[in-house]
Design a binder for these strands. Structure first.
Lengths: 348, 348
DNA sequence: ACGCGTTACTGACGCGTGTTAGTCGACCAT
DNA sequence: ATGGTCGACTAACACGCGTCAGTAACGCGT
């Protein structure tokens, strides 16, 4: 069985030195190689079925051309994240533009703490995108201090690491403004997650900002916490219904919103006739909810791309902004209506 | 700035040779190392913050400890696959048990054909799990012929490559038997995808088998094709409604089913009062559809695990079965009912 | 004839590790 | 004393490539 060909084999096949082969294969423009020599090398490589041995090249060049995506989330959180795959695709596409590949490392927060640290320290990856980390992650703090190429996907105030995120505050504000514009005044909020998560904090902040700008108080009795999945939305809505009244609700996650809508239905409240609902994320199924969900579109693919580009810039030591915010877009569908139509339908 | 420590540094710090360090770090049991020496090496490594340089170790050992997950699907297909992330988690967990990591390579079918081939040939990955390939993929055929470690996630008849899949035929059959057991006789079917996809073929075969076993013909007029997403289910259901009548439908995908249910609603048909619906996949949101969807649970995480284990066995040259089928489970919820209750509700 | 630059290469070192074939004592049976 | 075995280690090569420093040939102006 023939050994896999090495650059030395290509060199002797083409009648040049191994160095020349290396220059040709890496397409170095700073070295002059006459077209005919280049061609001779290329066709020799082709003939032999030569493929550079990537570990060897990593060793010699000191760069692995791999970026890691660390999923620092609970399994439930990952499974429920309907846009994660899109983000991954965006990341991979950005990586590919510079010949990088993406390694995915799912690491539950309660798991082995410094496991992704090894990815960098062993130079298995040239940089990391960290999704869903917590501020108190000790290994993350250590890595950040050592100036490793890291980009955080999300928000992590007080940490001097570049981050890429969706403008959660503005998106949530826009959602609530939509409800206000329809004439709603008692607007409840169910968060997408516990408020120790910054995305939940930010969306809640947008909710409060919108209310404040309209001269309305943000009442604690109108706020409940969701936890990524539909059951949590269902439970949160039941708590809200048992406690107070409202004519609209901003649910900071489409998935949680679906659970909440279910609870509304069970309570005999109709959407949007009795209660208007706005979600967040615009998951592919949102348009097929009953009623179709008005929501805030989150550019998942673009988010991944932005994170990838930022990380690659950081690896190549190009300067990057410390924080990138991507815009959101309000998608109006059937789950929101004016309060007047509510009176109409309750009269029926 | 101090260089990263190498095994040579650890060796001199511990007062042993580099070879001994290597033996200790790799925990080789076939070499006798007294506990005190082992401890001396370990604490020296600890003191210096030593982490083996993974490209170097890959070069020397000839193994990358990386497996690739190739997503040979269209972006829409990937985004719509609600269980993909779970499969990835299962794969990663299986990989971790043997110290492997997972590299994800999204490659649209119409993209660069032999791009994932390079992953193997350059020894960037020790093996591949290929998800959603097509039988006519030329580079896949070439790789299969060359005896590379490959496991296909799905069904690819006629190709001598190990594969891991869910028992689509049995699952679909069970779903339709459930409808038959309720008393339904005119049962339609909307596939999850075009029937060039083997998963769609298999589920359709299960549908036909169940009907056949009950002595019923499988009428072409009762069959429509879906295409991964909710809009396709919506369109397929509209075509069915325009063409024929039925009192139940098996939709071979929860996502497609949601679109179909929307079309039923628009046509004034109620679920399950007028039409019973069974889905497939049991996506996390299925329990929160209106009505909660009766469906066939697909063990996504276990599927990923099984694929990972099969691939690792293959890489380690342990014998593996050429085909592994995972069982499904029928989850009965609210979208199915007996025809008698249909008459009841239409009477109301 | 000479210096100088340019073109087109090449020799050899280094990257950090795994591993084979040994070395050197010490201990034991003969 | 001698041969042999075993434990504990090590020297040195191999892995395949990137890259620096260098060189030989050649042209060209003076």
């Amino acid at each position: 069985m023939p050994r896999r060909p090495t650059s030395a084999d290509v060199a002797s096949e083409a009648g040049v030195s191994r160095t020349t082969v290396s220059f040709v294969m890496n397409g170095r423009t700073d070295i002059k190689i006459p077209p005919e020599t280049r061609q001779r090398v290329l066709s020799a490589a082709e003939r032999l079925g030569y493929h550079p041995h990537s570990p060897a090249r990593q060793l010699a060049a000191g760069r692995s051309h791999v970026i890691g995506l660390v999923l620092r989330q609970t399994p439930e959180q990952i499974a429920g994240d309907a846009v994660l795959v899109d983000t991954l695709r965006g990341l991979a596409s950005a990586a590919r533009t510079e010949g990088f590949r993406v390694l995915v490392e799912p690491l539950p927060p309660n798991g082995p703490e410094s496991s992704f640290e090894a990815l960098l320290r062993s130079q298995h990856a040239d940089g990391l995108v960290i999704s869903g980390p917590r501020t108190d992650d000790p290994s993350l703090l250590a890595l950040a201090g050592e100036d490793f190429p890291i980009v955080i996907q999300g928000n992590m105030p007080g940490l001097s690491v570049a981050s890429v995120d969706v403008d959660n505050v503005a998106g949530a504000r826009r959602a609530v403004e939509h409800l206000l514009g329809l004439g709603h005044r008692r607007i409840a909020c169910i968060t997408n997650a516990a408020v120790v998560y910054t995305a939940a904090q930010d969306r809640l902040a947008g909710y409060r900002t919108a209310l404040g700008a309209a001269g309305l108080p943000a009442l604690d009795e109108l706020i409940e916490e969701g936890a990524f999945d539909a059951p949590s939305g269902h439970a949160a809505m039941k708590r809200l219904l048992a406690r107070t009244t409202f004519d609209a609700v901003f649910v900071a996650s489409d998935v949680v919103a679906l659970g909440a809508i279910g609870a509304l239905r069970e309570a005999g409240r109709r959407v949007p006739a009795d209660v208007s609902v706005v979600g967040f994320d615009d998951i592919p199924l949102a348009a097929y909810f009953d009623p179709p969900l008005t929501t805030v579109r989150l550019p998942a693919y673009e988010l991944g791309q932005a994170a990838g580009r930022a990380l690659l810039d950081r690896i190549a030591e190009r300067s990057i902004p410390s924080r990138t915010l991507l815009p959101t877009e309000l998608i109006v569908r059937g789950s929101t209506a004016t309060p007047s139509s509510q009176r109409l339908s309750t009269a029926v």
